[in-house]
Design a protein around this nucleic acid. Structure first.
Length: 434
RNA sequence: GCGGGUGUAGCUCAGUGGCUAGAGCGCUAGGUUGUGGCCCUAGAGGCCGGGGGUUCAAUUCCCCUCAUUCGCCCCA
């Protein structure tokens, strides 16, 4: 076997594609119901976009980006025709969906066309990671971004949309977790409070947490190794440290969630790894996906549009992994509706019937009737088996006798009944739907 | 970047230091001269992931490598 799909990527074969189409279609329909419009952005962007948006020190930017450059692949330092070292522009494959969406929003001044912009996307994301269950180098996300309002009710809508989508797909038993991560005005004070509370215990904590204590103490909160039954009471709750604006927002979000009928749990240890999040932060998780239990995650990012060079614009959104949705469905035994294709199958017998058979096949297709035939000139039995394999509803049988008389036999593959009738009439009847 | 598991037919997997390496499913053909599914019969299809070592002999034991998978980090 010479060529394989690159590590961490997978082919989506015909048998699985119908599941993907169903999930994507469900997402599209849900977004439409909530007033979101689809946007499609390039698979690669300027590297700096993600450095700015996601954060220089995040894992995504510091060690997981896929670089791409144009032109002929060449050795480093190779010179071009003119003998000069050519500095080739490099880009990165999109590692997440928010930054490109906001980039497009700013570039095309969408914010000036309407007071609010509600967008959704379905796109592959690329991260150079070590693959494991539910984690790939190319994974696919459905996501939304709502720009132009800091209304807490919008936060609730975004979460409600995600939940509605997952429920429509067939997922149940999920867990919706909510938190606020504050804003630049109040987060530093909380970070200090957290540091102080953990100060004397940090020595007995895991190496990772000791490192985080210095670099990003908030991340200690989602460490899987610490004994949270003892730490929980010690750790300060961020809601007690939120500024007036963040506190009021968080309370209002919870009221609006109730109005949307969303059941959630407050997780005071929920923090997220992308730098742009402020205030509302949420995750939907599901057991049975393996260690990567987050199926959907998102939050508010009010300063991001401005950071990327746009007008100050509040925003909120989420990303949701299609592969993880599919894993959850598999664990739950969710049955997907199958797109029933019931074509007409044309069976021909003998050389004299072949060309007339092809013409009949073409007439059917041109009339909008799904039709197929066997291209291996085999026995009738083999052709009937082929018809059965494609789940044919009717089989048209054309032998030399039929051709000579201008008729064809129509066999009903369900009842087994068969009748012979003029080809024109047969065509009209199949085109009419039976 | 680190740790564990697994590589045998298209797929899911048995198996053995020694003779032509097996099963189920799938595929092909036959069981009707021009009629599918179910059933029966037959057939095709494997350098047992690659390289090296031990041995009279390796698919089997050992080492390396590659691939894959699960986990850590992080995230969807």
């Amino acid at each position: 076997m010479k060529y394989k799909a690159p590590r961490g990527t997978q082919d989506i074969l015909p048998v699985e594609v119908s599941r993907w189409r169903y999930v994507e279609g469900t997402f599209r329909r849900t977004c439409a119901d909530f007033g979101y419009e689809e946007i499609r952005t390039p698979a690669f962007e300027q590297t700096d976009l993600f450095v700015r948006a996601v954060g220089e020190h995040t894992d995504i930017v510091s060690k997981e980006m896929f670089s791409v450059s144009g032109g002929k692949p060449s050795e480093a330092g190779e010179s071009d025709d003119a003998g000069e070292k050519k500095e080739r522009e490099t880009f990165v494959l999109r590692p997440e969906g928010t930054a490109p969406t906001l980039r497009a929003y700013i570039q095309h001044s969408l914010g000036k066309e309407a007071p609010m912009t509600k967008l959704f996307y379905i796109a592959p994301n690329f991260r150079y990671e070590r693959p494991q269950k539910g984690r790939l180098r190319q994974h696919h996300q459905t996501g939304i971004e709502a720009l132009g309002s800091d209304d807490p009710a919008l936060d609730a809508e975004v979460i409600a949309l995600g939940l509605t989508y997952l429920h429509r797909v067939g997922i149940r038993g999920e867990r919706t977790e909510l938190n606020s991560v504050g804003c630049p005005a109040c987060r530093p004070a909380y970070r200090e409070a957290l540091r102080q509370a953990l100060g004397e215990r940090i020595g007995s904590m895991c190496g990772n947490c000791q490192r985080r204590y210095e670099t990003n103490p908030l991340r200690i909160l989602d460490c899987k190794f610490e004994d949270w039954t003892v730490l929980e009471p010690v750790v300060p709750d961020i809601v007690d440290h939120l500024c007036e604006s963040c506190a009021g927002h968080f309370a209002a979000v919870q009221e609006a969630l109730a109005a949307f009928g969303v059941e959630y749990v407050r997780n005071k240890r929920l923090v997220r790894g992308l730098d742009y999040y402020v205030k509302t932060s949420f995750e939907i998780t599901h057991s049975g996906l393996g260690a990567q239990s987050t199926i959907l995650g998102g939050g508010r990012y009010d300063g991001l549009v401005e950071d990327l060079g746009g007008e100050p614009t509040p925003g909120i959104g989420f990303g949701c992994g299609i592969e993880r949705v599919l894993l959850a469905c598999e664990a739950l035994g969710v049955e997907f509706p199958v797109e029933a294709r019931r074509p007409v199958f044309v069976v021909t017998l003998g050389d004299a019937a072949r060309l007339p058979g092809l013409k009949l096949l073409n007439d059917l297709r041109q009339a909008g009737v799904a039709a197929d035939t066997d291209y291996r000139a085999r026995s009738m039995k083999a052709q009937m088996r082929a018809a059965n394999r494609v789940n044919a509803r009717y089989v048209v049988i054309l032998g030399e006798d039929e051709v000579a008389q201008g008729v064809a036999s129509l066999k009903d593959m369900e009842g087994g009944g068969q009748e012979t009738l003029p080809q024109g009439e047969l065509l009209a009847r199949l085109a009419a739907g039976a």
